[in-house]
């Protein structure tokens, strides 16, 4: 019987993931305070329709349901994280006690693993990864737009605000997490037994492997920062925080 505090990481993961889930769900249903000037919350990006300057379409296409934009967007990053190999191992332990910890007894006898329905569906992870890579491009564009501020003349000028940095750090952390994905590692070269003679693939595989070694850290930091980015934009939009212009 283990006598050390094996349960501490599981409690930590349970609290952090539950808090994030609760906050993201609440924020997605708000449908307000998701933009502030040139800043757009990552929870609401891409903003497909609306009157906002961030919106892709002014009028709602027939195929886009009239619900909070975040509800259309969040299933993709949520699916990516839910099916992520790192998070799977973490929440199986923290939420389902399967197992509660390494070399700690289990509360139930039956076990299906990821061999049967429903967890066999975790194999869809690579498709969420494709979507996550697309989202990185969109969030990078949002971060770039966060450096352009409308002046009194209505013309946009380059500037740097704290929010610009918040959104830039967000896309950097999300890139570190997404580009270190195990499925991407497989896709760029892991499926091959021989990478010699393929210098580009070799380089890509080495880069993804390098990020993959810190996948756990990227996963937690990016999760925290994406929530903080939404909070920052929301607080500025509500007038509670003031966005400081650095340049």
């Amino acid at each position: 019987m283990r006598r050390d505090a094996w349960w501490v990481p599981q409690i930590g993961a349970f609290v952090v993931l539950s808090s994030f889930l609760a906050y993201a769900t609440w924020a997605a249903f708000q449908n307000a305070h998701y933009e502030f000037g040139s800043y757009l919350s990552p929870f609401y990006s891409p903003l497909i329709t609306g009157d906002s300057p961030h919106a892709w379409f002014r009028t709602r296409p027939w195929f886009v349901p009239a619900i909070s934009p975040a509800l259309l967007i969040l299933p993709f990053p949520a699916g990516f994280r839910f099916t992520c190999y790192y998070y799977r191992g973490t929440y199986y332990k923290a939420f389902w006690a399967d197992p509660p910890g390494c070399a700690v007894g289990e509360p139930r006898n039956s076990y299906l693993g990821e061999k049967s329905f429903p967890l066999i569906l975790q194999n869809v992870h690579r498709y969420f990864m494709y979507a996550a890579v697309l989202f990185l491009g969109i969030l990078a564009l949002d971060a770039y737009r966060g450096y352009w501020f409308a002046g009194p003349d209505g013309v946009k000028h380059f500037g740097i605000g704290v929010g610009s940095l918040v959104l830039t750090i967000n896309v950097c952390l999300l890139s570190g997490y997404t580009l270190g994905c195990h499925s991407l590692r497989h896709l760029v070269g892991g499926y091959l037994d021989r990478l010699s003679g393929r210098p580009l693939r070799r380089k890509a595989y080495d880069c993804v492997s390098c990020l993959n070694r810190g996948h756990m850290n990227w996963a937690w930091f990016s999760l925290f920062w994406v929530a903080f980015s939404d909070i920052y934009v929301r607080m500025c939009s509500m007038g509670i925080w003031h966005d400081v212009r650095i340049l």
């Binding site: 191992g89 199986y92 197992p99 390494c102 693993g113 990821e114 066999i120 070694r213």
Partner: peptide, 22 residues
């Protein structure tokens, strides 16, 4: 292989530090 749910316990105990799971 589908029974493995990637808890990485095997990696943690390996005395040769083989990154078994990843």
């Amino acid at each position: 292989i589908g029974y493995c749910n990637i808890t990485k316990c095997c990696t943690k105990v390996c005395p040769e530090h083989i990154t078994i799971t990843d």
